[in-house]
């Protein structure tokens, strides 16, 4: 094994990979959120549709998006590997009584992650796959033809169950981030008494604000009928 594969196969290295991919996905959330906020323009979706096309055609963005898919995959696969390893580490016999002294979120990142994954599948099927391969209607702005993703989204958000799934998933995301954001810094060893407070504050704020804004959009659009 060379040093790099050794690093990646160690429990610490795997965690580092989780942290780095997690932080990348946190950045992705910000970019995604900025896009989503375009839905709130009162322009019948023009800003959003222009944005959607830019995101699916710009070669640089396209490259980044493939990296993003890969990173999501790594985050999931490594999470599975770690979870299996951690389960085995308890040994043949578990405890009869446990009386946990840690936060619920920190102990249930796997469950939260799985919820987010299920959401991701629904979400990708509903919008991303539609945008790429679906028979989506088109609109024209300034003599240019755009796929009208806005209408797809707008229609989806008239369905209570869809909005409900979205909101529940964002709550799961919030809990996931509640632990994940700060945890990533801890795993990378970015810990110093001068900055710990800041990391904690930003992490907690991020975990609340970003999923809240995400969830706000379908709620808003649902109510705005």
């Amino acid at each position: 094994m060379n040093w790099f594969t050794k690093l990646l196969s160690s429990t610490l290295g795997r965690k580092v990979l989780m942290a780095l991919t997690g932080l990348f996905l946190i950045l992705f959330l910000v970019v995604h959120l900025i896009g989503n906020l375009q839905l709130l323009h009162s322009d019948q979706g023009q800003a959003f549709n222009i944005y959607a096309r830019f995101m699916t055609t710009n070669p640089l963005i396209k490259t980044v998006s493939y990296v993003n898919y890969a990173i999501i995959l790594v985050h999931i696969v490594w999470a599975l590997l770690l979870t299996i390893h951690n389960r085995k580490s308890r040994g043949p016999e578990g405890y009869a009584v446990t009386n946990g002294s840690s936060a619920w979120t920190s102990r249930n990142m796997g469950i939260l992650g799985t919820l987010i994954l299920i959401f991701l599948v629904i979400h990708l099927k509903g919008f991303w796959a539609e945008m790429h391969w679906g028979g989506i209607s088109t609109v024209t702005y300034d003599n240019e033809v755009y796929k009208d993703l806005y209408t797809v989204v707008d229609k989806a958000y008239t369905m209570e169950w869809y909005v409900a799934i979205y909101v529940v998933s964002m709550i799961a995301l919030a809990f996931h981030l509640w632990h994940g954001f700060i945890s990533a810094f801890q795993t990378l060893g970015l810990n110093h008494s001068k900055y710990n407070g800041l990391i904690r504050f930003v992490g907690r704020a991020f975990a609340i604000i970003v999923p809240a804004l995400f969830a706000l959009i379908p709620i808003w659009m649902y109510l705005d009928k």
Partner: peptide, 22 residues
């Protein structure tokens, strides 16, 4: 030390903080 820790079969840290609390 980390290599030996892994070889012994201990799990990975998921920063739950239970260790510190106990």
């Amino acid at each position: 030390m980390v290599a030996q820790m892994d070889a012994e079969g201990f799990g990975a840290c998921t920063n739950t903080g239970a260790c510190e609390a106990e």
